[in-house]
C-alpha cells in the first residue's frame, strides 16, 4: 500500500520534506542519511568523471541504504558544479565528484574554487600521467628526450592550456631543465595522435589515452611513483631519469565545507568501503585507472599541496 502511494506521489513529482535538524541538535544528524543524496558530476554523461562517479554511487547506495543520485552539471570546466556544491547547505545530502581541476581553477581561471570551501572526503581514483613519443621517434628513453631538448626546445602536445597535462609538462621541464614548448590540443586523444603523426615531438596525457593508441606511440615514462599496471615495462619518471615527477588526473569526493562531524565520518567511511569493493576495483581497472585511496585528512593535505604546486606552475 505504501509502495503504491509512494509511486503515485513520485508520479506527480513530489516527495516528503525531511525534518530539518535544529542547530546544535545532534540526534537528527545521527540518523544520517535519511533521504536521497545528490552526487553532482562536473562533466557530461559518458566521460571518465561520469563513469567513475556512477560506479562509486552504486556502491555508496548499498552501504548507506539510501539512493545516491548522480546528477550531471557540466560547464565552465567543472567550476559551475564546484561553486554550486559550495553554496549548498552542509548537511551531506549534496556531494560532488572533484577532479584535479578543483585545485587548479582558482589559479587558471580565477574561479571561486578553493580547497577551503570544501570538506574533502576522500580520493577514489587516479589516472596516472605518461609521456609518449611517436613510434618512429628517435628518442628511446625519457633521458634522450630531455637531452635533445637542451639544444633546442621540443614541442610537447597536451590537452589544453591550464590542463593538468600542461602543468605536468611544465613541471617536468622545470625539474629536469628541459626546454618544452607546450602545444594545446582539444583533448588527450588528439594530443597523443599529434605525437603519433609526428606533428609534435612528444605528448603528455593520461595513461589511458596513450594506451588506446598503443603501437602508434611509445610511452617513455609514467609520471607516477609506482609502475602502471597496464604498462609494466615502462619505468616511472624517477626510474628513468632519477628525478621524481608525479602528475596525474586524480578524483575524489567533496562536500560543502562545515559538515557536522558525524555526517563527515559516515560519508568518509562509506567512501572508504565503496572504494574497497570488488566491483568498484574491477571497474576502475578495466577503465585503465588506478584505485588510489586517500582518507579525508590525507586527501585534504594532498589537494592543498597540489593547489600550491599548480599556483607555481600555471600562475
Amino acid at each position: 500500500m505504501a509502495g503504491v502511494l509512494g509511486a503515485a506521489i513520485a508520479l506527480v513529482g513530489c516527495s516528503p520534506v525531511s525534518e530539518v535538524a535544529e542547530p546544535g541538535e545532534t540526534a537528527a544528524a545521527s540518523t544520517f542519511p535519511d533521504k536521497d543524496i545528490r552526487l553532482i558530476i562536473q562533466a557530461n554523461p559518458g566521460g571518465g568523471s561520469d563513469l567513475s562517479s556512477r560506479a562509486l554511487a552504486s556502491e555508496l547506495e548499498k552501504i548507506l541504504g539510501v539512493s545516491v543520485i548522480p546528477e550531471n552539471m557540466p560547464g565552465a570546466s567543472g567550476a559551475l558544479a564546484m561553486e554550486f556544491v559550495a553554496q549548498q547547505p552542509a548537511d551531506g545530502y549534496v556531494i560532488g565528484f572533484g577532479p584535479s581541476e578543483i585545485a587548479m581553477l582558482n589559479t587558471t581561471q580565477n574561479a571561486n574554487v578553493l580547497p577551503e570551501n570544501y570538506d574533502l572526503l576522500g580520493q577514489i581514483m587516479l589516472a596516472p600521467g605518461v609521456i609518449s613519443v611517436g613510434a618512429d621517434s628517435p628518442y628511446e628513453t625519457l633521458q634522450d628526450l630531455i637531452d635533445a631538448s637542451k639544444d633546442s626546445a621540443l614541442t610537447v602536445a597536451n590537452s589544453g592550456a591550464g590542463s593538468i597535462w600542461e602543468a605536468a609538462t611544465l613541471g617536468l621541464a622545470e625539474e629536469t631543465g628541459a626546454q618544452f614548448t607546450t602545444v594545446a590540443y582539444d583533448g588527450g586523444a588528439t594530443a597523443v595522435a599529434a605525437a603519433a603523426s609526428g606533428e609534435a615531438v612528444a605528448a603528455v596525457s593520461g595513461a589511458g589515452e596513450a594506451l588506446a593508441q598503443k603501437g602508434a606511440v611509445r610511452v617513455l615514462a609514467v609520471l607516477n611513483d609506482e609502475t602502471y599496471f597496464n604498462l609494466p615495462d615502462v619505468p616511472t619518471a624517477e626510474e628513468a631519469i632519477g628525478t621524481a615527477a608525479v602528475y596525474g588526473g586524480w578524483g575524489g569526493i567533496y562536500a560543502p565545507a562545515g559538515l557536522p562531524d558525524d555526517v563527515h565520518s559516515i560519508l568518509e567511511d562509506a567512501i572508504a568501503q565503496a572504494v574497497e569493493t570488488d566491483t568498484y576495483q574491477a571497474f576502475q581497472k578495466q577503465s585503465g585507472n588506478m584505485v588510489v585511496y586517500r582518507d579525508s585528512a590525507e586527501f585534504t593535505d594532498f589537494v592543498n599541496e597540489q593547489f600550491t604546486l599548480f599556483q607555481k606552475l600555471l600562475g
Binding site: G46, G47, L51, G187, T190, A193, A212, Q213, Q286, G288
Partner: peptide
C-alpha cells in the same frame, strides 16, 4: 587509431575499454 572520431565515439571508447 583509438582516437574518437566524434563525440558519440568518445563515449563508445570508454565503454569498450571497460569491456
Amino acid at each position: 587509431l583509438g582516437v574518437p572520431g566524434d563525440s558519440v565515439m568518445a563515449i563508445m571508447i570508454g565503454s569498450m575499454m571497460i569491456w
